[in-house]
């Protein structure tokens, strides 16, 4: 952003004066690597996906450059078993299911993370550092291993079924291969991403404001709702984004824990690129997913700026 601010007035002046200004624009050259990185590593792949999504599919997978919107059409309309084009809600169902799973995961993470982060923020500094370290500890282990660990915990003869059997549950109990198992693994996997930003914003919370709220006869509920939540909102929102967005693309948990009986968007995209041999359609779904995410992020950003300007 800074470079365009510097850049603007310079380009407005005479061309002769521009040259040295351009070459000496340190902010521009200093930021150039990051712009290049963003362009090559972020923007370019997305543009390629967008181009593939409108390409013509190859007969045996792959694609040929071209302009063909049938990938997008296929999300809503397909040939039925009798051959005519009809409205097929199956992909919408998969997309909505994915959104719902990501939403529920985010809500559970939020509900658990806020008290946890608050509790950590209230500890003495040394203990606080240790607790934050513990929260980040799971990142040191591969995600696949962590999901497999859950498969053992919930599976037949695992610690949890054994524990319940001890208290009289019937033998051979298993909690695997259902939506609950998927959700447990998702919440576990993404929890640290929620706790850390929430913790960061709660830690910055000014305690005197809470005291002031109490002085003004605000009870605990009012203090939470009107002082603590608004002040920590940025942390809550960024935590929610960090959990929601990767949850949309989750493949591992639904297939390993949920038993793969219902497709999610991630596995649907994977199927189109592999066995389905329909890359443009896979890319079209990926673009749709991306647009969903962008809309959500834009709405959040607009709300945040609207609040700032009214404040």
């Amino acid at each position: 952003m800074t470079d365009s601010a510097h850049h603007g007035p310079v380009t407005a002046t005479a061309p002769r004066a521009r040259a040295p200004g351009f070459w000496h624009n340190l902010a521009f050259w200093g930021l150039l690597p990051s712009w290049l990185l963003m362009g090559v590593a972020l923007l370019l792949p997305i543009l390629i996906i967008a181009a593939v999504s409108v390409a013509t599919r190859g007969a045996y997978g792959g694609f040929e450059w071209g302009f063909d919107l049938s990938g997008y059409r296929q999300i809503l309309f397909n040939e039925g078993w009798t051959g005519e084009l009809e409205f097929t809600p199956q992909y919408l169902v998969i997309i909505l299911r994915t959104l719902a799973l990501a939403g529920v995961t985010t809500l559970i993470c939020l509900a658990v993370a806020v008290p946890v982060a608050y509790h950590i923020a209230c500890q003495p500094p040394r203990l606080k550092a240790a607790l934050v370290y513990l929260i980040t500890l799971p990142f040191w282990v591969s995600m696949i291993l962590r999901v497999y660990a859950w498969m053992i915990i919930l599976g037949r003869d695992g610690p949890l079924p054994r524990f319940l059997e001890f208290f009289g549950a019937h033998a051979g109990l298993s909690f695997m291969y259902n939506d609950g198992a998927t959700l447990a693994a998702m919440v576990y996997t993404y929890m640290p991403l929620m706790v850390l930003p929430v913790f960061a914003s709660i830690e910055k919370l000014d305690g005197t404001l809470i005291e002031a709220a109490h002085d003004l006869y605000g009870n605990r509920w009012v203090t939470l709702r009107r002082v603590i939540l608004p002040l920590t909102a940025p942390g809550l929102i960024s935590g929610a984004i960090l959990v929601f967005v990767p949850s949309l693309g989750a493949v591992l948990e639904p297939s390993l824990m949920g038993g793969g009986k219902q497709m999610m968007m991630g596995s649907l995209i994977q199927l189109q690129f592999s066995g389905g041999r329909n890359w443009p359609f896979g890319a079209a779904i990926a673009m749709t997913l991306l647009v969903f995410v962008m809309i959500v992020l834009l709405l959040i950003a607009r709300r945040a700026t609207a609040k700032e300007s009214t404040a």
């Binding site: 009986k261 199927l271 189109q272 066995g275 329909n278």
Partner: peptide
């Protein structure tokens, strides 16, 4: 053939939709 493979994918997607 692509037509046959599309039917396979269709069966699979409807099975797991």
């Amino acid at each position: 053939s692509p037509a046959a493979q599309d039917l396979v994918t269709k069966v699979w997607t409807q099975l797991l939709q």
